[in-house]
Structure formats: C-alpha cells, structure tokens
C-alpha cells in the first residue's frame, strides 16, 4: 500500500504508544535534483521497521541505521547525503542532488 505523510506520522504515534522506541527522519533541505521534497518523512522503530521515504530508496538504508543510533543515544542528528558526500560510495543519490535529513527520537 502507498502511504501518505498522514499515515506516516500517525504510524509513528501508534508505534510509540505501543511502547516501541521510535525515530522520525525529515528531509529539511535539498539542493539540485532530489527525489523527495522538503518535509518528507521516514519513521523508524527500534526493530528497524520503517514507513515512508526521504529519497527514492537511495539512502533509506543508511537513514534507518542512523535512526537506530539516534534512538539509542536520544540526541537528534542532521545527516547530509549527496555525490559530494564522503558516504556517497555506499549511500549516494544517483540523481546527483544533495539532501539534508534531520533525525530525531520521539520521547
């Protein structure tokens, strides 16, 4: 099923209320050609289940991994992805754009 931003944030609330640790990742900035607009969400639970997207599937894996760190540490993180980024070889955007993703834990 396709999910809307509405489903995504509602799911984050459901997961948290069910006692799971949850993180929300949000696209906060884009440069050049980026697959998902600013404001797009990806929500992640402590088991690595996720819903939504911050790119066309290019960096979701990396964001999920970082989100698990954020859940553990409790402090938000600002991530950047793109061809100029040193992580590009494993989690780059093939479209050549860059994005900034804010990852925060739901307390």
């Amino acid at each position: 099923m396709l999910t809307t931003d509405e489903d995504i944030l509602a799911k984050a609330e459901d997961w948290r209320k069910a006692g799971k640790a949850v993180a929300i990742a949000t696209v906060v900035d884009t440069w050049g050609s980026a697959p998902r607009p600013v404001g797009s969400h990806l929500v992640i639970d402590e088991d690595g289940n996720f819903l939504g997207s911050v790119s066309g599937g290019c960096v979701e894996g990396e964001v999920v991994t970082e989100a698990l760190d954020v859940i553990e540490a409790g402090k938000p993180k600002l991530l950047e992805f793109g061809v100029a980024d040193e992580t590009a070889w494993r989690a780059g955007l093939s479209c050549g754009g860059r994005i900034a993703v804010y990852v925060e834990k739901v307390d």
């Binding site: 944030l9 984050a12 609330e13 948290r16 209320k17 739901v106 307390d107």
Partner: peptide, 9 residues
C-alpha cells in the same frame, strides 16, 4: 520530538 507534540500534530 515529544510524543504529546506528535499527537497534537
């Protein structure tokens, strides 16, 4: 994000 903020949103 606090859970009550997420709920309010």
């Amino acid at each position: 994000m606090r859970l009550n903020l997420l709920s309010a949103l």
